[in-house]
Protein backbone atom coordinates (compact mmCIF):
# COMPACT_ATOMS: atom_id res chain seq x y z
CA UNK A 1 0.00 0.00 0.00
CA UNK A 2 2.74 2.40 1.01
CA UNK A 3 4.69 1.17 -1.98
CA UNK A 4 1.82 2.13 -4.29
CA UNK A 5 1.46 5.52 -2.61
CA UNK A 6 5.18 6.14 -3.02
CA UNK A 7 4.98 5.15 -6.68
CA UNK A 8 2.00 7.40 -7.25
CA UNK A 9 3.80 10.37 -5.76
CA UNK A 10 6.75 9.59 -8.00
CA UNK A 11 4.41 9.37 -10.97
CA UNK A 12 2.75 12.65 -10.12
CA UNK A 13 6.10 14.42 -9.87
CA UNK A 14 7.31 12.86 -13.13
CA UNK A 15 4.05 13.97 -14.75
CA UNK A 16 5.22 17.56 -14.44
CA UNK A 17 7.99 16.81 -16.94
CA UNK A 18 5.55 15.13 -19.31
CA UNK A 19 3.42 18.25 -19.08
CA UNK A 20 6.43 20.32 -20.19
CA UNK A 21 7.00 18.04 -23.20
CA UNK A 22 3.32 18.46 -23.94
CA UNK A 23 3.36 22.24 -23.49
CA UNK A 24 6.12 22.57 -26.09
CA UNK A 25 4.26 20.35 -28.52
CA UNK A 26 0.93 22.04 -28.02
CA UNK A 27 2.46 25.51 -28.39
CA UNK A 28 3.59 24.58 -31.90
CA UNK A 29 0.30 22.92 -32.74
CA UNK A 30 -1.68 25.86 -31.37
CA UNK A 31 0.16 28.60 -33.21
CA UNK A 32 0.79 26.96 -36.59
CA UNK A 33 -1.30 23.75 -36.66
CA UNK A 34 1.84 21.72 -37.11
CA UNK A 35 2.68 18.44 -35.39
CA UNK A 36 6.41 18.18 -34.90
CA UNK A 37 7.30 14.48 -35.09
CA UNK A 38 10.92 15.32 -34.23
CA UNK A 39 9.85 16.92 -30.93
CA UNK A 40 11.07 14.00 -28.80
CA UNK A 41 14.35 13.78 -30.67
CA UNK A 42 14.91 17.48 -30.10
CA UNK A 43 14.38 16.89 -26.36
CA UNK A 44 16.99 14.12 -26.42
CA UNK A 45 19.33 16.26 -28.50
CA UNK A 46 19.03 18.98 -25.83
CA UNK A 47 20.04 16.44 -23.19
CA UNK A 48 23.06 15.41 -25.24
CA UNK A 49 23.98 19.03 -25.74
CA UNK A 50 23.79 19.57 -21.98
CA UNK A 51 26.02 16.51 -21.55
CA UNK A 52 28.51 18.01 -24.01
CA UNK A 53 28.48 21.43 -22.31
CA UNK A 54 28.95 19.83 -18.89
CA UNK A 55 31.93 17.84 -20.14
CA UNK A 56 33.52 20.82 -21.84
CA UNK A 57 33.11 23.32 -19.03
CA UNK A 58 33.09 20.98 -16.07
CA UNK A 59 29.79 22.38 -14.78
CA UNK A 60 26.66 20.76 -13.36
CA UNK A 61 23.42 20.15 -15.27
CA UNK A 62 21.55 23.07 -13.68
CA UNK A 63 24.27 25.56 -14.54
CA UNK A 64 24.42 24.11 -18.03
CA UNK A 65 20.83 25.27 -18.57
CA UNK A 66 22.17 28.84 -18.82
CA UNK A 67 23.89 27.82 -22.04
CA UNK A 68 21.63 24.98 -23.22
CA UNK A 69 18.32 26.88 -23.14
CA UNK A 70 19.38 29.91 -25.22
CA UNK A 71 21.33 27.81 -27.72
CA UNK A 72 18.50 25.32 -28.20
CA UNK A 73 15.99 28.17 -28.53
CA UNK A 74 18.15 29.83 -31.18
CA UNK A 75 18.39 26.50 -32.99
CA UNK A 76 14.61 26.21 -32.86
CA UNK A 77 14.20 29.68 -34.34
CA UNK A 78 16.58 28.85 -37.20
CA UNK A 79 15.00 25.45 -37.80
CA UNK A 80 11.57 26.98 -38.16
CA UNK A 81 12.63 30.02 -40.09
CA UNK A 82 14.80 28.31 -42.68
CA UNK A 83 13.27 24.87 -42.94
CA UNK A 84 9.90 24.19 -41.38
CA UNK A 85 8.22 27.43 -42.49
CA UNK A 86 8.62 26.23 -46.06
CA UNK A 87 6.54 23.15 -45.28
CA UNK A 88 3.50 25.14 -44.11
CA UNK A 89 0.47 26.16 -46.11
CA UNK A 90 0.06 23.08 -48.32
CA UNK A 91 -1.82 20.73 -45.99
CA UNK A 92 -0.79 18.36 -43.21
CA UNK A 93 1.46 16.12 -45.26
CA UNK A 94 4.62 18.22 -45.86
CA UNK A 95 5.27 19.20 -42.20
CA UNK A 96 4.58 15.63 -41.04
CA UNK A 97 6.90 14.02 -43.55
CA UNK A 98 9.66 16.59 -43.15
CA UNK A 99 9.63 16.28 -39.36
CA UNK A 100 9.61 12.46 -39.63
CA UNK A 101 12.73 12.71 -41.79
CA UNK A 102 14.21 15.23 -39.35
CA UNK A 103 13.57 12.79 -36.51
CA UNK A 104 15.48 10.01 -38.29
CA UNK A 105 18.33 12.38 -39.15
CA UNK A 106 18.63 13.56 -35.53
CA UNK A 107 18.63 10.01 -34.15
CA UNK A 108 21.36 8.90 -36.49
CA UNK A 109 23.50 12.00 -36.03
CA UNK A 110 23.31 11.44 -32.26
CA UNK A 111 24.16 7.79 -32.81
CA UNK A 112 27.29 8.68 -34.78
CA UNK A 113 28.43 11.39 -32.39
CA UNK A 114 27.57 9.81 -29.03
CA UNK A 115 27.28 6.04 -29.92
CA UNK A 116 24.37 3.86 -28.83
CA UNK A 117 25.54 3.74 -25.19
CA UNK A 118 23.15 5.08 -22.61
CA UNK A 119 24.03 8.40 -21.02
CA UNK A 120 22.91 10.14 -17.89
CA UNK A 121 23.53 13.63 -16.53
CA UNK A 122 25.22 13.65 -13.11
CA UNK A 123 23.77 16.20 -10.72
CA UNK A 124 25.70 15.24 -7.59
CA UNK A 125 24.32 14.72 -4.06
CA UNK A 126 20.93 16.26 -4.86
CA UNK A 127 20.09 13.11 -6.82
CA UNK A 128 19.73 11.05 -3.65
CA UNK A 129 18.59 13.74 -1.20
CA UNK A 130 15.06 13.23 0.07
CA UNK A 131 12.54 14.28 2.64
CA UNK A 132 11.28 11.40 4.75
CA UNK A 133 7.76 11.60 6.20
CA UNK A 134 8.23 8.38 8.13
CA UNK A 135 10.33 5.26 7.79
CA UNK A 136 8.49 4.12 4.67
CA UNK A 137 7.28 7.26 2.89
CA UNK A 138 9.78 9.70 1.48
CA UNK A 139 9.93 12.18 -1.34
CA UNK A 140 13.07 12.96 -3.33
CA UNK A 141 14.28 16.55 -3.42
CA UNK A 142 15.07 16.34 -7.11
CA UNK A 143 11.63 15.14 -8.26
CA UNK A 144 10.01 17.90 -6.18
CA UNK A 145 12.34 20.47 -7.70
CA UNK A 146 11.43 19.15 -11.15
CA UNK A 147 7.75 19.34 -10.43
CA UNK A 148 7.89 22.85 -8.99
CA UNK A 149 9.92 24.00 -11.99
CA UNK A 150 7.33 22.48 -14.31
CA UNK A 151 4.45 24.22 -12.58
CA UNK A 152 6.30 27.55 -12.61
CA UNK A 153 7.10 27.23 -16.32
CA UNK A 154 3.52 26.34 -17.18
CA UNK A 155 2.26 29.25 -15.11
CA UNK A 156 4.71 31.56 -16.88
CA UNK A 157 3.56 30.30 -20.27
CA UNK A 158 -0.03 30.88 -19.25
CA UNK A 159 0.79 34.48 -18.28
CA UNK A 160 2.76 35.01 -21.45
CA UNK A 161 -0.09 33.70 -23.57
CA UNK A 162 -2.92 35.60 -21.96
CA UNK A 163 -1.35 38.73 -20.52
CA UNK A 164 1.40 39.87 -22.87
CA UNK A 165 1.41 41.47 -26.32
CA UNK A 166 3.62 38.60 -27.40
CA UNK A 167 0.95 36.08 -26.43
CA UNK A 168 -1.70 38.23 -28.09
CA UNK A 169 0.23 37.98 -31.35
CA UNK A 170 0.49 34.19 -30.89
CA UNK A 171 -3.23 33.84 -30.34
CA UNK A 172 -4.11 36.17 -33.21
CA UNK A 173 -1.84 34.24 -35.57
CA UNK A 174 -3.39 31.00 -34.41
CA UNK A 175 -6.88 32.38 -35.14
CA UNK A 176 -6.32 33.86 -38.57
CA UNK A 177 -2.90 34.07 -40.20
CA UNK A 178 -3.98 36.36 -43.01
CA UNK A 179 -5.60 38.97 -40.82
CA UNK A 180 -2.66 38.72 -38.41
CA UNK A 181 -0.47 39.92 -41.25
CA UNK A 182 -2.83 42.86 -41.72
CA UNK A 183 -2.01 43.80 -38.11
CA UNK A 184 1.65 44.04 -39.03
CA UNK A 185 2.48 40.61 -37.60
CA UNK A 186 5.24 38.82 -39.51
CA UNK A 187 3.79 35.32 -39.23
CA UNK A 188 7.04 33.64 -40.30
CA UNK A 189 8.79 35.40 -37.43
CA UNK A 190 6.02 34.52 -34.98
CA UNK A 191 6.18 30.84 -36.01
CA UNK A 192 9.93 30.86 -35.49
CA UNK A 193 9.56 32.49 -32.07
CA UNK A 194 6.97 29.86 -31.15
CA UNK A 195 9.40 27.10 -32.08
CA UNK A 196 12.18 28.82 -30.13
CA UNK A 197 9.95 29.05 -27.08
CA UNK A 198 8.78 25.46 -27.48
CA UNK A 199 12.33 24.18 -27.59
CA UNK A 200 13.44 26.39 -24.71
CA UNK A 201 10.73 24.80 -22.57
CA UNK A 202 11.53 21.25 -23.62
CA UNK A 203 15.28 21.82 -23.18
CA UNK A 204 14.65 22.42 -19.47
CA UNK A 205 12.46 19.30 -19.34
CA UNK A 206 15.00 17.28 -21.29
CA UNK A 207 17.83 18.16 -18.93
CA UNK A 208 15.72 17.31 -15.88
CA UNK A 209 14.68 13.99 -17.38
CA UNK A 210 18.27 13.16 -18.29
CA UNK A 211 19.31 13.57 -14.65
CA UNK A 212 16.59 11.17 -13.65
CA UNK A 213 16.76 8.43 -16.26
CA UNK A 214 19.16 7.02 -18.81
CA UNK A 215 18.81 8.12 -22.39
CA UNK A 216 20.18 7.03 -25.75
CA UNK A 217 19.78 8.34 -29.31
CA UNK A 218 16.50 6.45 -29.73
CA UNK A 219 14.73 7.67 -26.58
CA UNK A 220 13.09 10.56 -28.46
CA UNK A 221 10.02 8.93 -30.02
CA UNK A 222 8.81 7.72 -26.64
CA UNK A 223 9.07 11.25 -25.22
CA UNK A 224 7.07 12.61 -28.15
CA UNK A 225 4.41 10.00 -27.43
CA UNK A 226 4.32 10.92 -23.72
CA UNK A 227 3.90 14.60 -24.55
CA UNK A 228 1.22 13.81 -27.09
CA UNK A 229 -0.69 11.57 -24.66
CA UNK A 230 -0.58 14.30 -22.02
CA UNK A 231 -2.03 16.85 -24.46
CA UNK A 232 -4.87 14.65 -25.63
CA UNK A 233 -5.70 13.53 -22.09
CA UNK A 234 -5.70 17.11 -20.85
CA UNK A 235 -7.79 18.37 -23.73
CA UNK A 236 -6.35 20.64 -26.40
CA UNK A 237 -6.31 24.30 -25.66
CA UNK A 238 -5.56 24.55 -21.97
CA UNK A 239 -2.08 24.61 -20.46
CA UNK A 240 -3.37 23.68 -17.00
CA UNK A 241 -5.28 20.83 -18.62
CA UNK A 242 -1.99 19.71 -20.12
CA UNK A 243 -0.45 19.69 -16.66
CA UNK A 244 -3.26 17.49 -15.39
CA UNK A 245 -2.86 15.23 -18.44
CA UNK A 246 0.87 14.89 -17.75
CA UNK A 247 0.24 14.05 -14.09
CA UNK A 248 -2.39 11.45 -15.01
CA UNK A 249 0.02 9.84 -17.42
CA UNK A 250 2.76 9.82 -14.79
CA UNK A 251 0.47 8.23 -12.22
CA UNK A 252 -0.87 5.65 -14.68
CA UNK A 253 2.68 4.62 -15.53
CA UNK A 254 3.58 4.41 -11.85
CA UNK A 255 0.59 2.19 -11.07
CA UNK A 256 1.41 -0.01 -14.08
CA UNK A 257 4.98 -0.34 -12.86
CA UNK A 258 3.67 -1.46 -9.46
CA UNK A 259 1.56 -4.19 -11.04
CA UNK A 260 4.40 -5.60 -13.10
CA UNK A 261 7.90 -4.43 -13.91
CA UNK A 262 7.98 -3.56 -17.61
CA UNK A 263 4.32 -2.61 -17.68
CA UNK A 264 4.46 1.16 -16.97
CA UNK A 265 4.39 2.28 -20.60
CA UNK A 266 1.54 -0.06 -21.47
CA UNK A 267 -0.44 1.32 -18.53
CA UNK A 268 0.21 4.87 -19.72
CA UNK A 269 -0.87 4.03 -23.26
CA UNK A 270 -3.96 2.23 -22.00
CA UNK A 271 -4.92 5.25 -19.87
CA UNK A 272 -4.49 7.41 -22.95
CA UNK A 273 -6.60 5.13 -25.15
CA UNK A 274 -9.26 4.95 -22.46
CA UNK A 275 -9.49 8.75 -22.24
CA UNK A 276 -9.57 8.91 -26.03
CA UNK A 277 -12.40 6.39 -26.09
CA UNK A 278 -14.52 7.78 -23.27
CA UNK A 279 -13.66 11.49 -23.42
CA UNK A 280 -12.47 12.21 -26.96
CA UNK A 281 -12.30 15.93 -26.13
CA UNK A 282 -9.99 15.31 -23.19
CA UNK A 283 -10.61 16.23 -19.60
CA UNK A 284 -10.58 19.99 -20.23
CA UNK A 285 -12.10 20.50 -23.66
CA UNK A 286 -11.46 23.74 -25.46
CA UNK A 287 -14.48 26.00 -25.22
CA UNK A 288 -16.04 26.08 -28.65
CA UNK A 289 -16.49 29.48 -30.18
Amino acid sequence: MIGTLNAMIQGLLLGGLYALFAAGLSLIFGVMRMVNIAHGDLIVASAYFAYFVMQMLGIGPFTSLLIVVPVVAAFGYALQRWLLNYTLGAGDLPPLLVTIALSIILQNVLLIVFTADVHRLQAGPIEIASWAFNSELSVGVLPVLQFVTSVIIIGALQLLFYKSSFGRAFRATSDDQQVAQLMGIETRHIFSLAMALSLAVVAVAGVFLAIRTNFNPFTGPLLLIFGFEAIVMGGLGSLWGTLVGGILLGIAQAIGGQIQVGLPFVAGHVAFLAVLYFLPQGLFPKVSQ
Binding site: R33, D92, F228, V232, G262, V266, H269, L273
Partner: peptide, 28 residues
Protein backbone atom coordinates in the same frame (compact mmCIF):
# COMPACT_ATOMS: atom_id res chain seq x y z
CA UNK B 1 -12.65 3.76 -34.91
CA UNK B 2 -10.45 4.83 -32.00
CA UNK B 3 -7.89 6.75 -34.05
CA UNK B 4 -10.60 8.46 -36.05
CA UNK B 5 -11.25 10.59 -32.99
CA UNK B 6 -7.89 12.26 -33.54
CA UNK B 7 -8.04 14.95 -36.18
CA UNK B 8 -5.54 15.46 -38.97
CA UNK B 9 -1.90 15.28 -37.92
CA UNK B 10 -2.83 13.90 -34.50
CA UNK B 11 -3.98 10.72 -36.18
CA UNK B 12 -0.35 10.20 -37.11
CA UNK B 13 0.96 10.10 -33.55
CA UNK B 14 -2.06 8.11 -32.45
CA UNK B 15 -1.23 5.38 -34.96
CA UNK B 16 2.24 5.27 -33.44
CA UNK B 17 0.88 4.85 -29.92
CA UNK B 18 -1.15 1.85 -31.08
CA UNK B 19 1.97 0.25 -32.58
CA UNK B 20 3.80 0.90 -29.29
CA UNK B 21 1.03 -0.80 -27.35
CA UNK B 22 1.32 -3.93 -29.53
CA UNK B 23 5.12 -3.87 -29.19
CA UNK B 24 4.92 -3.63 -25.40
CA UNK B 25 2.23 -6.30 -25.15
CA UNK B 26 4.18 -8.70 -27.38
CA UNK B 27 7.15 -8.24 -25.06
CA UNK B 28 5.05 -9.19 -22.05
Amino acid sequence: LLLQRLRGPQFTIGSWVVAEVFLQIAQQ
